[in-house]
Amino acid sequence: MNKQDIFERNNIQIIGKGAQALLMAHGFGCDQKMWRFVAPMLEHDYRLVLFDYVGSGGSRINAYDANRYASLEGYAEDIIEICEALDLHNISIVGHSVSGIISLIAAHAIPQRIKSLIMVCPSPYFMNEPPDYAGGFEKADLEDLITLMDSNFIGWANYLSPLVMGHNNPEELVAELSDSFCSTDPVIAKNFARATFFSDYRWLLPKNTHPTLLIQSRWDSLASLDVTQYMQAQMPQTTTTILEAEGHCPHMSHPAMVADAIRDFLQQNDPL
């Protein structure tokens, strides 16, 4: 596939200026619109490559292949193909939630193109496996979740808000953030949910070879601090920034905090 094909397939937008490029990978249930609060704070110093995974946002939906995107490797293929088509080098990937893990898979495949990884509220595995691992959910909870997505599929995917919001966030903010819902195809969204919630990539953590930053809200109902601590302990070259924030999407609810954390990390690795 040539560069133009990939541009259209993944709805790639490049904004900002600077020597350092950041590939911004959105999480489950949304698209590149979720970066709209944090992007204005970064675009003066960095070149931002925004995209939608196939099946999300403005991507080319007919390129969706249920088999390819049944696992996170398929989504990692999107990142790899984007990096290759644009011939990106020395790139930092900013991945929200499941995209943190997707970026790790991609970095494992094309290590020479990647400089560092920044994961916002990631989790390598959502299930509890006592006594060693507390992913936050029982299998039955996650199966219930898939069933509820199915039961509500007529409305759910059309009005999906990326905000697993904190209850302490002002409601004006919540209302503003939910102003543009991420409309997704329900079947695609459900497959993405399956790939997200039922995969276990803990084995991949020790294989990390890139400087990595974990950005985590202190109060997050999807990815707890236990998970962050586990990742920090398992991954080489990793630092953690805990935000005094609530919710699973701090880049939307607290964009300045996230922008600062990204900037600090990038400058430490490579002063401007």
Partner: peptide
């Protein structure tokens, strides 16, 4: 627990935005 995620990501934003929600399971 699963319903709380639907509540946070779908029901509450919908109510705050549209003023209502209908027939949510």
């Amino acid at each position: 627990k699963a319903s709380r995620i639907i509540l946070d990501t779908y029901v509450m934003p919908l109510i705050l935005h549209e003023g209502q929600c209908v027939e949510v399971m």
